[in-house]
């Protein structure tokens, strides 16, 4: 009987893990708050970036305000490869990153170890 329970639980867990991590889950896109000559968006850093995809308008100076809540050393750095940005995010503090919005496109960013990913869409 014990063995049966273990078997069922084990396979159940495997199925759940496969679905949770490998399955397709919709990613929410969030647009930046627009002002006349400035746009900004807040991104919370906790086990990833939320929202992980932000949309910026082309040609308007933009800032992404990161706020790291997570103690993981993985997430303490944010790297925008395309812009040459490699910033340290102080814990529980707002840290702004200025994004060059002159060219439209999709720009990926990641944590220092490239384990967590986010995306900036300029259009």
């Amino acid at each position: 009987m014990d063995k049966l329970i273990v078997t069922v639980v084990a396979f159940g867990l495997i199925a759940f893990i496969s679905w949770w991590f490998f399955g397709k889950h919709a990613v929410k896109e969030v647009a930046a708050n627009q002002a006349a000559d400035q746009q900004s968006v807040d991104v919370e850093v906790s086990g990833g970036y939320s929202p992980s995809t932000v949309v910026l308008k082309q040609g308007i100076p933009a800032q992404i305000n990161f706020n790291r809540k997570d103690a993981s050393s993985c997430l303490e750095q944010v790297v925008f490869e395309d812009f040459g940005i490699n910033d340290f995010l102080p814990k529980n503090e707002k840290h702004s990153v200025t994004i060059d919005t002159s060219k439209p496109g999709e720009y990926d960013y990641a944590c220092g170890m490239n384990m967590f990913h986010g995306k900036v869409i300029v259009k």
Binding site: H25, G47, G48
Partner: peptide, 8 residues
């Protein structure tokens, strides 16, 4: 836990 919520 935070990563888990993000499917990570």
């Amino acid at each position: 836990w935070a990563a888990f919520k993000h499917h990570h």
